[in-house]
Design a protein around this nucleic acid. Sequence first.
DNA 1: ACCAGCTCCTGCTTGC
DNA 2: TGCAAGCAGGAGCTGG
Length: 284
Amino acid sequence: MPELPEVETVRRGIEPHIIDMRIKTLTLSSKKLRLPFPANMASKLQGQTIKSIARRGKYLLLHLSTAQNLIMHLGMSGRIQILHNTLINFHYNQSLNPKHNHVIFVFINGKTMVFNDPRRFGMVDLVADNDLWERPYLKHLGAEPLSNNFTAPYLKTCFKNKTASIKSALLDQRIIAGIGNIYANEALFDAYINPLCPAGMLDDMRIENLVYCIRKTLKAAIDAGGSSLRDHRQADGTLGYFQHHFKIYGRAEKVCLNTDCNEKICKIQQNGQSSFYCPQCQKL
DNA sequence: ACCAGCTCCTGCTTGC
DNA sequence: TGCAAGCAGGAGCTGG
């Protein structure tokens, strides 16, 4: 599922193809994503040039020539692909089912960018510059985990008196922007913290180490090109490969990978999501 | 205010 | 073989 590293991988993958590109036509599907498409989006985007592409949490922000921003969220199963020759690639590319194409950008140079999302948990929005950070889904986002704002004192303040589990706290986008279920599991394993541990119970040393482990986990995933687990592919259509490096996610009943630990990995449900942990290594 | 649980959605896997 | 149930989860919403 696209989390911060996958979204960053997509951002880097599509950036060289779309910067300074003018949109010739934009086609929208009739199906609604998590939010309906903004009114007249196709006509508003036609003729605009993409000036830059940024990321905030799991959101992609495309800055347009007319002080507007196209915002995209990949949800659970969203993909973005650049197709150099529309007809040929559509025909031979088995990975994208065209019936789940929701936004098709055709640029003046003939290149095509497709937003495809079978489960339709994704989202597309169009916002003027002066309204951008007032959008509720952006306004309340917490620290970027790879920025200088993400520090142990910051996390300590967020976790103060929190009775909710550390696992659900890591998934709270108002605290940290961009972590999803997979990397929450991986970071907690790396930090030797049990996902059931109440966030407010962590002492300074463990929080310090957790900050380090979150950064390390996310950076490693970005370096590996993002995971391609189930639905994710890089922008050029090639598979990422970080899924081979999961130390804990999806390893229920398998032996813990830590040296000298022979314990079996446990799988539990927390807030409707699967958590994996080693009961020996990860302390409450 | 805070927290857990439900909901949306489709495709893959599992079980009978 | 075929069908149905189960599972996957990001984020917004609801109810305790």
